[in-house]
Simulated assay, not measured.
Amino acid sequence: MTEKIYTEENSEYLKKNPTWHAEDSPWKAKQIIKMLDRNPIHPKSIAEVGCGAGEILNQLHKTMPDDVHFTGYDISNDAINIARQREKSRLEFRSEDFLKINSKFDLLLMIDVFEHVDDYLGFLKLCKHKAKNTIFHIPLDISVNRLLKNDLMSLRKSVGHLHHFTKETAIATLKDCGYEIVDFFYTTSFLDFPRKTISSKITYLPKKIMYKTNKDITVKLLGGCSLLVMTK
């Protein structure tokens, strides 16, 4: 699995994920706003690396003050072609390698990104000085439930996850790459998203009770969460 799945014309990733997960973007944008509300920063320039279809920035553009400028970067022309349909005043998208630009921003968003990158440690280190603060959204793929079902490989095939994390390894990775942790919290897709299958409907209430009782244990056992982290 390499960057070719994103960069080739009519890429494999686009074929498997034709919306580029834009339907999840309003929920992700709400998590970002929640993090910003919890911490006293007021960015005027926001960049997103690996912006995909651009809907997260579009949602933030609708919500945040009128003096904030948003720029999305992606190496995939497929993604940028979708994202540019959302361009407007203070919101632009660029088909560029983020590591090669000289600009610096108040806030960098890296939302479900570095688990897709071959050399994710090198990538994180090179992004470190691109912004005053960075917000990461990191899927926590490793859980007892997923390991027992032996389906980590399905994430590699369907959504291109090359690396898998727990809360502890995600935070340790960021620290090892020079980031200072400001704040973090779980994002609970298993609680927040509609329950479409019979099994998810049956297990919803027990999982909700477990999560309220002990978040860490529930996430380690059952999965279904990601980690939102703010750094500087």
Rank of each mutant, 00 (worst) to 15 (best):
F185T: 01
H164E: 11
D192K: 08
T169D: 09
Y179Q: 06
D176R: 14
G178A: 11
H163W: 15
I181V: 12
L191C: 03
Y186F: 14
H163I: 06
T187C: 03
A172S: 15
K167V: 11
T188H: 02
F193P: 00
D183N: 14
K167L: 13
G178F: 12
F165P: 07
E180L: 07
P194A: 01
P194G: 03
V182H: 00
F184K: 02
A170Q: 07
D192A: 11
I181A: 04
F165D: 08
T166V: 07
P194K: 02
F184M: 10
V182P: 00
T187P: 01
H164M: 13
L174C: 10
T187L: 03
V182T: 12
L174P: 03
F193Y: 14
V182E: 15
F193K: 12
H161W: 08
E180N: 13
F190V: 02
T173P: 06
K167Y: 01
F190N: 01
T166L: 09
K175Q: 15
S189K: 07
L174R: 08
C177I: 10
H163A: 08
F185C: 04
D192R: 07
H164W: 14
L162R: 15
L191Q: 02
F193G: 00
G160H: 10
V182A: 09
E180I: 09
G160M: 09
A170N: 10
L174G: 06
P194I: 04
C177R: 10
F190G: 02
K175E: 15
K175D: 01
H163M: 07
T187A: 09
T188N: 02
T173E: 10
G160D: 11
G178K: 13
K175P: 00
Y186A: 07
T188L: 00
I181F: 03
F193S: 08
F184I: 00
I181C: 05
D183F: 10
D176T: 12
G178N: 12
T188E: 00
A172K: 15
L191A: 00
I171C: 06
E168G: 04
Y179M: 08
G160V: 11
G178C: 09
G160K: 10
A170K: 05
D176Q: 14
K167R: 15
H163S: 11
I171M: 10
F190H: 05
F190S: 02
T187F: 00
I171V: 14
C177G: 08
A170V: 11
D183V: 01
P194H: 02
L162K: 15
E180V: 09
A170S: 14
Y179F: 15
H164S: 13
K175H: 02
T188I: 03
A170F: 06
A172Y: 05
F184W: 15
A170R: 06
